[in-house]
Design a protein around this nucleic acid. Structure first.
Length: 425
RNA sequence: GUGGGCGUAGCUCAAUCGGCAGAGCACUGGACUGUGGCUCCAGUGGUUGUGGGUUCAAUCCCCAUCGCCCACCCCA
């Protein structure tokens, strides 16, 4: 072996996902497909790259995501391009570009895939991460808000993730939010010297964020700050009350968090977050809300819309801790049902034929090509195979293969075609 | 971008005051010629993240750099 001149590793904050963790991902994704499908959502796949302008216009230039976290570059044609930092902008672009508003409302989509943000990695946060999300266009009724939230919770439950809490808030329409910001500035203005440097910056950029500052003094000062719920216009108030009433009626547990803020500029009215206490500082596993103005800002007709996104890595981390799923992993985590040990070249052909028959029936079969019979068996055991089938010269002659159940130690002989029957005993 | 912690075998970790880089697990093979697990034996595996500096001598001390972890900012 010559020593490699260079070694490579994946980029900072952009890790590989290896088995058996990928099995968790598949389980989460299949739960999503099933639940979302039953709610009338179909999958949409949009590019991972979009014009940078798309994100500037949707997420908002003041957001850190756009200001400093985008992977942006200029392509050979001089176009400004960015890797998507979130999924909604692309879906809205596709919705408008393909004139989907002419299809009957509501139009409902879900998506999944990698997102990119140039941030310092920490627990639950990476530079490439994966989201699975849903978007619904053309429904303004609060019933759709409640339905979307319930769909999200049903998905998480179906995926097998427990210990989550749902927080609801309304950040109103641009009118009531603007009024609220002024009330906040009026309240915090006199306290500016006492607030932390970050909050002094927030005071200018987005005073709502002062409300969820983590500095103790800021929390104290903010304790008596006005709440958005007191500033909502009658329409927004009615909408929010209606959403909450529906959740209550459906016995979906939630808590109103009047201090919840969203990171993206496009949200209006309903916003929500699903949190876990087991994820460190990055405790949100899913978040979303209504964005009634974004479609028209993208050149489409005025179209109310709402959606959410869930973080796959965070969900997978939680799911990996579920004891229920640990058991499942032990039973099905990439373990062959049948391990065929051929001895000699002629037996190899017979092993392939036999394996092919079983595999076409969906049985997971491993063939042990290398090593002695002993090492083959040892490997079968380590792989967690249920059944070993041995094919040597004697077996080829008689057509009866030796088998052994590695759990019970039972063994015997059986015709090649009968092997699957042994599995269902 | 800011602050703190940590980098020794695939993994978990040792290495006395600065003095020959080790163990367990894992992997491969053998003991047992065609029957796994248990036991025993052996083997593979390292420029101690990288580059400088101090020193007779550096895994150890110093500097830089890269990476990882945690937190802030921000966010799924």
């Amino acid at each position: 072996m010559t020593k490699p001149r260079f070694t490579f590793s994946s980029l900072k904050g952009i890790p590989d996902v290896l088995p058996p963790e990928t099995i968790l991902w598949n389980k989460i994704e299949s739960a999503a497909c099933e639940v979302f499908g039953s709610c009338g959502y179909d999958e949409i796949r949009t590019p991972v790259m979009e014009p940078s302008e798309l994100f500037l216009r949707s997420i908002g230039e003041s957001s850190d995501i756009v200001a400093k976290e985008m992977y942006s570059f200029t392509d050979k044609g001089g176009r400004g391009i960015s890797l998507r930092p979130e999924g909604t902008a692309g879906v809205v672009r596709a919705y408008v570009e393909h004139n989907l508003p002419v299809r009957p409302a509501p139009q409902k989509f879900f998506y999944r895939g990698p997102m990119f943000r140039y941030e310092r990695p920490q627990k639950g946060r990476q530079r490439q991460f994966h989201q699975i999300g849903a978007e619904c266009f053309g429904a303004s009724h609060p019933g759709m808000d409640a339905e979307l939230v319930m769909m999200l919770m049903a998905f998480l439950e179906k995926a097998g993730i427990s210990g989550l809490s749902l927080e609801m808030n309304s950040i109103g329409c641009p009118e009531c939010r603007a009024a609220f910001k002024e009330r906040l500035r009026a309240y915090f203005g006199p306290h500016l010297p006492e607030l932390c440097p970050d909050c002094n910056r927030r005071f200018e950029q987005n005073p709502l964020r002062i409300l969820d500052c983590k500095v103790e003094r800021c929390i104290e000062i903010g304790a008596d700050a006005p709440l958005i719920s007191e500033s909502l216009c009658p329409e927004c108030r009615r909408h929010f009350d209606s959403v909450l009433a529906l959740l209550t009626a459906m016995k979906t547990p939630y808590a109103v968090n009047p201090r919840m803020v969203r990171g993206l500029d496009y949200y209006t009215r309903t916003v929500f977050e699903v949190k876990s206490g087991r994820l460190g500082a990055q405790n949100a596993v899913a978040a979303g809300g209504r964005y009634d103005l974004l479609v028209s800002e993208f050149g489409g007709p005025e179209t109310p819309a709402l959606g959410f996104a869930a973080g796959m890595e965070r969900l997978a981390k939680l799911l990996a801790e579920e004891t229920l799923f640990k058991d499942l992993m032990e039973k099905t985590g990439g373990q062959p049902e049948v391990f065929i040990a051929p001895l000699g070249d002629a037996a190899g052909a017979a092993a392939l034929v036999s394996a092919g028959l079983m595999r076409s029936r969906g049985i997971r079969v491993e063939i042990g090509w290398d090593g002695s019979l002993k090492s083959k068996l040892r490997r079968a055991d380590k792989m967690g195979a249920k059944l070993v089938v041995i094919i040597g010269e004697d077996e080829l002659k008689s057509g009866m293969y030796k088998w052994k159940d590695l759990k019970s130690g039972e063994s015997g002989e059986i015709g090649a075609a009968e092997i699957p029957g042994l599995l269902s005993r």
